[in-house]
Design a protein around this nucleic acid. Structure first.
Lengths: 147, 147
DNA sequence: GTCTTGCCTGGAGCCCACTCCAACGTTCTA
DNA sequence: TAGAACGTTGGAGTGGGCTCCAGGCAAGAC
């Protein structure tokens, strides 16, 4: 892809909106470390990041969007290997469409299940917290157990 | 604590309800591996498990209850180290009451935050899945990106 | 007796997702 | 021209949460 903004190779800070970011800017923006950004690239989770004429990474807005999506997948608890799989499928083209959809649907089901699990832990926690709230510190009533 | 069921040292399977379980029975019951059960004990997450006269572990119902609670904490995503901390606090007695309560409340807040995060990933997933559902495989319309 | 099954122990090993390191290059500021 | 600040690489290290292993004991079945 031709870089339309290459006239000035602006080397430093840059308040966003320029579609040409250094690795540390992206780190600040995404909350990922520069280590992690480079690692994502090495393992194939981040496709072909553009480089400046001196070989430094220059991220574009579409890279930030991809990273945002990856961030969401990370929040779902999806394994990094599976995200790499998804990225691979995208690269491979249209015929991988069913597998990609299946991956997303499976992930969605996972998330729904995990939400339910968390809700169940919430009721246990609320029950315990309720006991603590009712019971004066001295008289430990319905307590768990440790000897 | 005196073991009221010790007359017969029943060596094998045992359908639950006897308040005297071998490690493999507990593993089956909890879904944890025997390795993990021993490991929990080593790191102080499991207090003083009773032993048979030959030195084998004999779990009681209160141990199963504790393990069930630990299982819930595990589902919350609480670190094992924090669970150990909680177990330690219980052992230390009533004066640790405020810290225990604080731990549970903090965990609860964590869970609530995680549920919100998961809900937000759900809407992203649904959006993507929607795109896949609308778009015929051939014409990949609003796709993410990988080059 | 010996075979099998189940249990014991301490310590090593494994997988995941980073995280850091050494050695070096590039560019801006003074 | 020097120094600071940022960037590059491949490979090693870290921490969490298990997981496995070797070597051995105990007890029922044949």
């Amino acid at each position: 892809m031709v870089d339309l903004c290459a006239s000035v190779d602006r080397p430093f800070p840059q308040p966003t909106g320029q579609d040409r970011y250094t690795i540390s800017e992206v780190a600040r923006h995404t909350g990922l470390s520069v280590h992690t950004l480079r690692w994502y690239e090495r393992i194939g989770l981040m496709p072909h990041v553009d480089r400046s004429h001196t070989g430094q990474r220059r991220y574009h807005n579409h890279d930030l969007e991809w990273l945002a999506f990856v961030g969401k997948l990370r929040l779902t608890g999806m394994a990094v290997a599976d995200m790499v799989r998804y990225a691979d499928l995208l690269r491979e083209g249209d015929h991988t469409y069913p597998e990609r959809l299946a991956l997303l649907v499976a992930t969605r089901e996972d998330v729904v299940r995990r939400v339910a699990e968390l809700q169940s832990t919430l009721s246990v926690l609320d029950f315990k917290i309720g006991i603590y709230a009712e019971t004066p510190p001295a008289a430990s009533g319905g307590e768990e157990l440790p000897a």
